[in-house]
Design a protein around this nucleic acid. Structure first.
Length: 579
RNA sequence: CAGGGCGUAGUUCAGUUGGUAGAACGCAUGCUUCGGGAGUAUGAGGUCGGGAGUUCAAGUCUCCCCGCCCUGACCA
């Protein structure tokens, strides 16, 4: 490929809507252009990266025994209603209506579709297991798309779905896929962690996220440096051990707390430490309201609460809702004397054993002092609904959890029978019984990977693609393309590199040397050969993107040495190592 | 969805109390250049997001709409 014939419009300045370094470099490097919020065009350079990533993912899936297929993006609403997710997924689904007023969704995921597909045709235990995948465009109407390709509304994803006769079969495939994901990340040459995660609206029990480490990552992660425990913030657990001093129960007492709504306010106003306040939050779900109680200095983890309530629609109730339903403004809600049909009260473990604490009094501008469990109110149960924080004790050993950040690239789930049961997808077992499949599903963010890689591998001048994902492995920069001698050598080197299996772009543009160097760095091409005035002395220059030094290679006796050096550099290149 | 901000040349932005639409970069052409985003001259490029209103006069003031960006369980 000749650069003069390629289409890679690079920009000197950052786009005004840039909110993340990877987005800035991808736009400036001519990889992508934004069309609308969370919707992008991949220009030729970006598409080449997508193809590289796709190739890696496809090869690893094929090696893992997955069969590639292609399902429609437009899916009938009926199958989503049948699984119950038309509501659960709700506003995040892009919905369309055809001319006959039939409803469709632009698929945010394909569990329903794949299950319906195999339902009547994968019918015997002899056909199992099967693992089917596709690489396709997905739609999720995010509340707020941002961070370029990291949180897009239209994106490319690899999704695989496995079907099994029993749990053991599922476990085996889960492990195979887990290893395949590790290989994908190794081939991409990225630093990553596989962490325990929350399964969210996809459903299911066991799940791991594959997260690459990046300072600007969206997902907080917790890990234990002592035993290696790793989990996402939503999933992370900790060793629950609250030891409260035994105090005498004091008389409950109402106090006026005008306009003191937050824990912060109350703590200062009443001169009570936050640990002696119990925070009461009302959540609204499909089965009504839940009052969640937690110690004032701690945070509630809504994912844990949702998992406990088995209700993914659970949200913090709107202040107006709380006022209408409970007659008390938020800020003064509390468990004492709170009675309501269908209301469940769940307390975090941090509340158990706490004595003489402050709560809202279910009355505007009023709180209770010296509230006590059992004596003043009861709860329906104690659960772990706390958001883990750095420094919390590790659940598995005596270490302390540390926080780091990352970007989720893929996730593997054990779905179990959730979809096969709700969609009535069954196979005939050996004894003739009709049983629902055990299922697994395995997602990989292909377009997100593009951004993720850049987020981990960049410097002040631009991107440093790993060799396996680079749009071109090498660039030949011709300083003065109008110089016949320079062009002659450059073209000879170009031919030999192609023959040696190195994907190379020949920068024959008639622009200044500086601008060609800047573009090569911004685009992030791993290897560079510069053909310039040194050619008069039989010298060309070689430079790696991850090294600041460049060195001359003598070609007066032929190109063999140069090509050998390039082949070696291609094998050994690692953009994580900078010199 | 709520709150806030911004929409002016391909890009990044300026535009004063309302009075002929600007710069830099980019683009085109010529010359000089050519090793880290060259110099010079000339030139093309705008429904000032859209609509309505106020006014002799609107990029500028008012209202409505659209789009984009930021923040948002805020701790009850």
């Amino acid at each position: 490929m000749r650069f003069s014939q390629f289409y890679a419009p690079t920009l000197k300045e950052a786009p005004s809507d840039s909110d993340l370094i990877s987005y800035e470099y991808l736009v400036r490097g001519g990889f992508i252009r934004k069309v609308a919020a969370g919707i992008f065009t991949y220009l030729p350079m970006g598409n080449r990266v997508i193809q590289k990533i796709t190739k890696i993912v496809r090869e690893e899936m094929d090696n893992a025994g997955c069969l590639e297929m292609l399902m429609p993006i437009a899916q009938p609403a009926s199958i989503w209603k049948q699984s119950g997710r038309w509501e659960d997924y709700g506003p995040e689904m892009m919905k369309i209506e055809d001319r006959h007023h039939r409803h469709f969704t632009l698929g945010p995921t394909h569990e329903e579709m794949v299950t319906v597909t195999v339902k009547n045709e994968l019918v015997s235990y002899k056909d199992l297991p099967k693992n089917l995948y596709q690489i396709n465009t997905k739609y999720r109407d995010e509340i707020r798309p941002r961070f370029g390709l990291l949180r897009a509304r239209e994106f490319i994803m690899k999704d695989a779905y496995s079907f099994h006769a029993d749990e053991q079969g599922l476990d085996e495939t889960y492990n195979i896929m887990y290893k395949a994901y590790e290989r994908i990340l190794e081939r991409m040459g990225l630093d990553y962690m596989a962490v325990e995660a929350d399964s969210g609206a996809i459903g299911g029990s066991n799940t791991h996220e594959f997260v690459i480490l990046a300072a600007n990552g969206e997902s907080p992660l917790f890990h234990c440096p002592d035993c290696g425990y790793k989990a996402t913030d939503e999933r992370a657990e900790y060793r629950i051990a609250y030891n409260y001093a035994d105090e005498e129960l004091k008389e409950i007492e109402q106090v006026a707390t005008p306009d003191q709504k937050t824990i912060e306010d109350i703590s200062e106003f009443l001169k009570v430490e936050k640990q002696k306040i119990v925070k009461s939050l009302i959540f609204k779900g499909r089965d009504g309201f839940i009052l969640a109680l937690i110690r004032g200095d701690l945070e509630i983890n809504i994912a844990k609460l949702r998992a406990f309530a088995a209700d993914q629609t659970l949200e913090l109730a709107q202040p107006a809702d709380v006022m209408a339903e409970f007659g008390t403004p938020i800020g003064f809600i509390g468990p004492v004397g709170l009675k309501k049909e269908g209301l469940r009260i769940v307390a975090d473990h941090s509340v158990k054993g706490l004595k003489n604490f402050v709560t809202g009094a279910m009355k505007t501008d009023t709180h209770y002092l010296n509230t006590n469990l059992e004596r003043d109110f009861t709860v329906d149960g104690f659960e772990d609904i706390k958001m883990v924080a750095a420094g919390d004790p590790c659940p598995n050993c005596s270490g302390k959890l540390e926080e780091t950040r990352g970007i989720e690239m893929g996730q593997v789930f054990k779905l179990g029978k959730k979809y096969s049961e709700s969609l009535d997808a069954k196979f005939a077992a050996e004894n003739g019984d009709k049983l629902p499949f055990y299922m697994g599903c395995y997602g990989w963010g292909v377009s997100r990977s593009v951004s993720g890689i850049v987020e981990q591998l960049h410097d002040d001048n631009g991107i440093l693609w790993p060799m396996s994902c680079a749009p071109f492995e090498a660039i030949i920069t011709v300083i003065k393309p109008t110089d016949e001698d320079q062009m002659k050598h450059a073209e000879a080197i170009y031919r030999l590199m192609n023959e040696a299996g190195i994907e190379v772009i020949l920068d024959d543009r008639n622009s200044s040397a500086g601008s060609k160097f800047k573009d090569a760095d911004l685009i992030g091409i791993p290897l560079r050969v510069t053909v310039g005035k040194g050619i008069k002395k039989g010298l060309v220059e070689m430079k790696l993107r991850n090294e600041s030094e460049r060195h001359d290679v003598d070609i007066s006796e032929g190109y063999t040495t140069l090509i050998e050096q390039l082949k070696k550099a291609k094998e050994e290149y690692d953009p994580r190592k900078r010199k």
